[in-house]
């Protein structure tokens, strides 16, 4: 399988899986975020990501003759194409959560800008739609990055987390998009934690997210 060039649905599933798994991770904050106003805001971001995942899966599903839900839930963990960055479980660590949010949204903006130029019209159109919402995610991430950077303590928490996650963030993108990311966040490129191998955190997440669905295979919920 690795010898083959990735198909267009493989690329699409990589984006969809990133959005799905990150959305799942971010939704772990719903109900326990640092303060109530942020709880509501961050939950919308998680919902936004799941919504985008669904849209990407729907497009892939028309190619593959399946459904968005089947793609989201009914594959084995090793079949997911998400990057390790999105798999990591961070609750209750807000610093790493925001660092990942900032890195992911910055990288995603670069990626989506590229996908908008796709020759696959449906995908390009979908990317343009997704971008309209991702703008708010990026604004939110930037607002947090700025606010944390405005105090010594906040900056320390944030910088440490960004440094730790930086190799993972590079793994979201390919080729020259990595340089664009490095430029945007003002860091030197390093060896990326590549997409392909999964972290140990994916299987427990998969177990939980598919638990109800697996309990009655084929049932409607």
């Amino acid at each position: 399988m690795s010898a083959q060039a990735p198909s267009r649905t493989d690329l699409l599933l990589a984006i969809a899986d990133d959005e799905l798994v990150l959305g799942w991770r971010n939704s772990e904050w719903t109900g326990i975020a640092p303060f109530l106003e942020e709880d509501v805001a961050f939950s919308s971001i998680a919902q936004g990501e799941i919504g985008h995942a669904r849209a990407f899966y729907e497009l892939a599903a028309t190619e593959l003759g399946t459904t968005a839900d089947a793609l989201a839930f009914d594959r084995r963990p090793d079949e997911y194409r998400c990057a390790p960055l999105v798999e990591l479980r961070f609750v209750p660590d807000w610093a790493r959560t925001i660092a990942r949010h900032y890195l992911y949204e910055t990288a995603d903006a670069i990626r989506i800008a590229g996908v908008k130029e796709s020759e696959w019209d449906e995908l390009a159109g979908l990317a343009a739609k997704v971008e309209r919402e991702e703008v708010y995610h990026l604004m939110h991430a930037q607002m947090w990055a700025d606010r944390l950077a405005a105090s010594t303590d906040g900056r320390r928490h944030f910088d440490e987390a960004v440094t730790e996650l930086w190799p993972y963030a590079l793994g979201l993108l390919e080729g020259e998009e990595r340089e664009r990311l490095a430029e945007t966040v003002g860091r030197e490129p390093v060896d990326a934690v590549e997409r392909g191998a999964h972290t140990d955190e994916l299987v427990p997440l998969w177990d939980e997210m598919t638990m109800v669905r697996r309990s009655a295979p084929g049932a409607e919920w």
């Binding site: 303060f35 106003e37 942020e38 509501v40 805001a41 919308s44 708010y136 604004m139 939110h140 607002m143 700025d146 606010r147």
Partner: peptide, 20 residues
């Protein structure tokens, strides 16, 4: 009313609370 660190946050939160 809502609590926010500054106007940028307040704007984002107002959108969430009264526009979602």
């Amino acid at each position: 009313s809502l609590e926010a660190p500054n106007a940028a946050f307040a704007e984002a939160y107002a959108r969430e609370f009264y526009g979602r």
